[in-house]
Design a protein around this nucleic acid. Structure first.
Lengths: 356, 356
DNA sequence: CTGCGTAGCTTACGCGCGTAAGTTGAACCT
DNA sequence: AGGTTCAACTTACGCGCGTAAGCTACGCAG
């Protein structure tokens, strides 16, 4: 038995039916192609008798007809595609929820989301845009002025660059990376901490996220009248984390709490604390970003800032749909896509010991 | 200053240049459209004078002309797209490398990879296929017979379903999920273990991966003459892991080593061991799959099976390119996309204590 | 001087579609 | 009887492209 199970690759020889065109439907229904088109698109000002309409619909059904997206795109000058540009270096675990949320939301408006992965240089971004000719682009990669204008001439009406902009650039709308930093700092301040540290990642690929997050911490400190955070670059090894922790805690004005760039950084910090025979939160408070599953497994479990990814993704999708419809000014549905998950690594003012 | 920074969404009003068509180029060069086409495509049997050729090339350059992918697709009947279907539930951290590897490899052959994210049900898979009309589909989601044939009539010449097939289905080619399970079991057997456990995940979304991995362990046990693994479903909490560990280790014929579905499962197991005041590898050996960064941070560091993702991705891309060219039978470049990373959680036969 | 091959183009068609602009014949009004 | 209206269609065009087929003028053999 040589049936084609899944996993088999086949070249095109297999006798497969060609897809039916509207001409085929017209022939089968015994009408002109135009009539078919009018019926299937419910053309508003065309009079089609019920009998004819039914014949056309039956013929289309019998032939399993669907219109060619390419022909549609050529004729109308626009596709129904939304292109998402994503940097390969950043494949985190929220990606799936983020993408499927956007996919579903856009699908309600008959828009199809596809993702293209970019390497170090975003060279292929423009090529892909030319090939797909999407109506909108949402980019998680910084885009140069030239690239955006080139994409616009390539047909992309709406271009959203999610990453790297400042708050004002985003029309005061939504969650930038800064917000996570702000949330960390505000929470620590509210817990009574005044001298903060920031654990900055060593990997260059994280720069574009780390920089705005740190900026958010700085901004919050400024607004709250706290001294700026003491920033240390922490490579991902327990030993180097231990050294950084020593620096933070041993000065004349020691840091009492550290904002970690993300949860993985915080995990490394926890290992560094062990290395120094110290413990969170008694010797140093710690807060991460992301709420990865491992957060609940550590001892003590890690306090962190959770990004409400579905909410954020929905906001972006909504903004795109809105911009495509192109009427009233945009207003966000929510501006709080963030929440602090309180667990065991931040000591609150007044606590002597923290409960296990 | 109201310049359009990144992060701004714009609707289409901005006076942007329309893209140039080959008609524009023809007009500027003072020739017919056909001549333009012949020049730009280096038509083999057409005689074009050098002067004309140069004028056309200059005009195309001046207008920044590129052919419309939609028109090309309509005229030729095929696109240069490869569609990758990915289940949103499975966004792991290797995704970036996997995708960019495939993207780069396919780009060498002027194929563009785009990814579409599927939710629980793969309902939209076919729609996307109809919209994009890709030459090939590589799916990480199981596809029904109807779906594959429908995709073929939609124009996809090559369809690769990476997941879920058995070894034979994949034309004896490459790495299925089974292989990771096999590698775990073989390694443990070689280290002297004879009674193995398998820590099966509780989350339903992991079923499609867990099942073949477990099948691989079973297969290896059979081939090595070992009793089959004692399978326990382990929810992701330390307490429940501790209970499972108790079951494994306390019988008349206790298990001495456990294959964890993946590293996260192994991490939970480690927490469960702590809960029981036990330790790997002295009380129980443990091996994961994936080699996530956290592996080196645990105490002891986690022994695991690493998937050589770039190699695997390249194999898939090569297979697709090969199938599209459609000549000689396919042969893989490598069949070992797996490696065991030996760290501290597997006790080798003869060791009394394991070195830290 | 006529015929012919050929370099160097142009004209024409089809890919599959939406849709504007006809066309036809029956019903209705004067 | 002759004109008008209108339902129910069909014909024709363009979107941007590749490419088959046709066309023209020039050089050259007979």
């Amino acid at each position: 038995m040589t049936s084609d199970g899944p996993g088999r690759a086949q070249s095109g020889e297999s006798a497969r039916a060609k897809r039916a065109t509207s001409t085929d439907v017209a022939r089968l229904a015994g009408v002109s192609r135009a009539t078919v088109s009018y019926v299937l698109n419910n053309a508003p000002h065309q009079k089609i008798s019920d009998a004819t309409r039914r014949r056309v619909l039956e013929a289309a059904d019998a032939l399993d007809y669907w219109p060619s997206a390419q022909a549609l795109a050529l004729a109308s000058g626009r596709t129904s595609l939304v292109l998402c540009l994503w940097p390969a270096a950043l494949a985190g675990r929220h990606l799936g929820i983020r993408m499927s949320t956007m996919t579903r939301h856009l699908a309600k408006y008959h828009l199809t989301l596809v993702t293209h992965w970019l390497g170090k240089d975003s060279e292929s971004a423009l090529d892909v845009c030319k090939i797909l000719n999407p109506v909108a682009v949402v980019s998680y990669v910084p885009l140069s002025e030239e690239e955006t204008t080139a994409m616009r001439t390539a047909g992309a009406d709406v271009i959203e660059v999610v990453v790297g902009g400042s708050r004002e650039d985003n029309s005061g709308v939504w969650l930038g990376e800064e917000s996570t930093g702000e949330a960390q700092a505000r929470y620590l301040a509210e817990a009574g901490h005044r001298r903060l540290g920031y654990a900055y990642p060593a990997a260059a690929r994280l720069e574009q996220f780390a920089r705005p997050r740190l900026a958010g911490v700085r901004q919050a400190c400024r607004e709250l009248g706290l001294p700026g955070p003491q920033v240390l670059t922490v490579p991902p090894t327990p030993e180097e984390a231990a050294a950084a922790i020593h620096t933070w805690t041993s000065g004349a004005r020691p840091v009492t709490a550290v904002c970690a760039y993300d949860d993985e950084m915080a995990l490394v910090m926890l290992a560094g604390l062990r290395e120094n025979e110290m413990r969170a939160p008694d010797d140093l408070s710690l807060i991460g970003v992301d709420d990865i599953p491992a957060c609940v497994l550590t001892d003590p479990p890690l306090t962190t800032v959770r990004i409400d990814v579905p909410a954020h993704a929905t906001e972006i999708a909504r903004k795109i749909v809105h911009a495509l419809s192109g009427d009233q000014p945009w207003s966000p549905l929510t501006d709080t896509c963030l929440a602090v998950v309180e667990r065991g690594t931040v000591r609150r003012q007044g606590d002597r010991r923290t409960a296990r």
